[in-house]
Design a protein around this nucleic acid. Sequence first.
DNA 1: CTGTTAGCGCATTCAA
DNA 2: TTGAATGCGCTAACAG
Lengths: 336, 336
Amino acid sequence: MSTGKSTLVRVAERAGVSIASVSRVLNGLPASESITERVRAAAEELGYVPNATARSLKVGRTEQIALAVADVGNPVYVSMMHAVNEVVASAGFRLVLSSTGSDPADQINLLKNLNRGFADGLILSPLRVTPDLIEEVRASRLPLVIIGSLPEGVAVDNVRANSRKGVGLAVKHLYEQGRRHIAFLNGPLDTVPGTARLAGYLKAMTNLALPVTSDLQVEATDFTYHAGLAATTALLNQSSPDAIVCSNDLLAVAAMKIIVGRGLRVPQDIALVGMDNTDITELANPALTSVDLGSARRARKAAKLLLARIDDPDRPVQSVVVSPTLVVRESSVVAG
Amino acid sequence: MSTGKSTLVRVAERAGVSIASVSRVLNGLPASESITERVRAAAEELGYVPNATARSLKVGRTEQIALAVADVGNPVYVSMMHAVNEVVASAGFRLVLSSTGSDPADQINLLKNLNRGFADGLILSPLRVTPDLIEEVRASRLPLVIIGSLPEGVAVDNVRANSRKGVGLAVKHLYEQGRRHIAFLNGPLDTVPGTARLAGYLKAMTNLALPVTSDLQVEATDFTYHAGLAATTALLNQSSPDAIVCSNDLLAVAAMKIIVGRGLRVPQDIALVGMDNTDITELANPALTSVDLGSARRARKAAKLLLARIDDPDRPVQSVVVSPTLVVRESSVVAG
DNA sequence: CTGTTAGCGCATTCAA
DNA sequence: TTGAATGCGCTAACAG
């Protein structure tokens, strides 16, 4: 193994063959014993490593896929990233992280940039879906998979959770625990999960013949821990729920903090259920009951869909829905 | 804006100029008013987007930097990733995530792969440093920055925390709170942080003339929450500390869980200090006192060093150390 | 100021 | 089987 740049040409010179032969040998195409031998030796001695960029330009593939998520601070996106990376890496693809904010403009920009061909496809998990974004998604000529809901009629591969049903599981569980004043701590209403989860809450409450009052509902300005603190404070100032369904785990942990800070007990005084079933559910004290929306599974599925689409651009569009499950822990069940 | 692939050639044809002129206009090089106008119009109409791969091949730059961290599950790495991404993105670079395990073999493999030229540089944060890895780091001809400690004499840009000093801050703080039986919950000893932090603990204890006994030390099999649960259990079975310094926040939160589960109180019965000052310090209940090792700052600095090195491969090697600070929260101080 | 041309490193077609 | 030659799309000399 030697120093310096080595190219096909240099290997070819050293082996005394043509660059075509070198390329063949290195790509496992048929070649004579003798040439194979010499090429391998020459490549080894020169420490030859094929250039990814040149290869990409030639074959029209970068072996990279891009992932864009809204909020890297949210553990659910971290687990998605992890899951996606596992799938694509084992298929020989690299993962390019295109962190965008929750601003749709960022995503639109990203979609445009993708046409520069630095990646073979994109997995996008938008928090807010605007008409502009949809337009751009429609127009995108690159393999694209959306994690999350999309309006009917947008023919793009996508995989989403049934978060309405998920909220339903949470409400029903709390009802079965004897709770009747079940509040809902939501994230911003102008987001896709925000609206879906609210719908789920309203429906579940109605189904159970529980009164739906506005003082039992509060909307955090963001799906973050800090926003959750403020929102929970507001909620407890305007009503006295005996249970709170939270739109994600970060909000739930924030709620727990405020509740305990007020000298109330979880779950005795207020039962708590989060959503996403992230790692922090176990770190929490008491451990947080949470609705598992299958984020890792969704991410894996999305990655596989994308790889399949890259492989065959003409395959039928697929839309998969992952069913939620409830993971009961300590925050919602009074022991004994 | 139209459909289909558009290249310089097509834009040139449409504008009735040479491809060189197109390239110039699009790169902001001097051109006549008339040509500029026509090129812009043609590019617009064709929805032309320059091809990143071709550009890379030509200029010898991918505008990508790779980041390899040991454990994506650890929030400290997430924040590093975030910080790195901010810096490189604003310099026009994309971030390629090369998640490696804690196995040095993965890193070595990565270094070799980097020579394929898919990225212009690498930021590596190795948990375990073996001679083989050092050898490979030395041999690497690509811009490389290490986050973490490196043996003397390895001339590679690196930025590290003074975690020995960091542990010292924690021990001293607990001592000042009146604690005398200060235990140490460490991660694996065959890791770089593991050894450094143990050294810090031993030194700090000695400085304070506190007895150092083996039953006050325990080593988790990993820097994870689950490993922390088992290790804490073992620790409490073999001794009765009135304080525990934990090698990172995940371990600390695990310790908190076990302690509370035994009916003991934090901080009254056992005071707790974590390290890394990650987001979970605030989620924890009580909020976790933690040593801030400046992970985000380190990551940002590493990114800047890498960009500088890419810009000028011959610049002197730089090694920067970030000083730790203690962030006192509820887990270490008895109120009142 | 503008056009022609030569590669960047590779995979691949076409002849031999 | 093997080699010569072409071109992926672009930038940068070089000439005019």
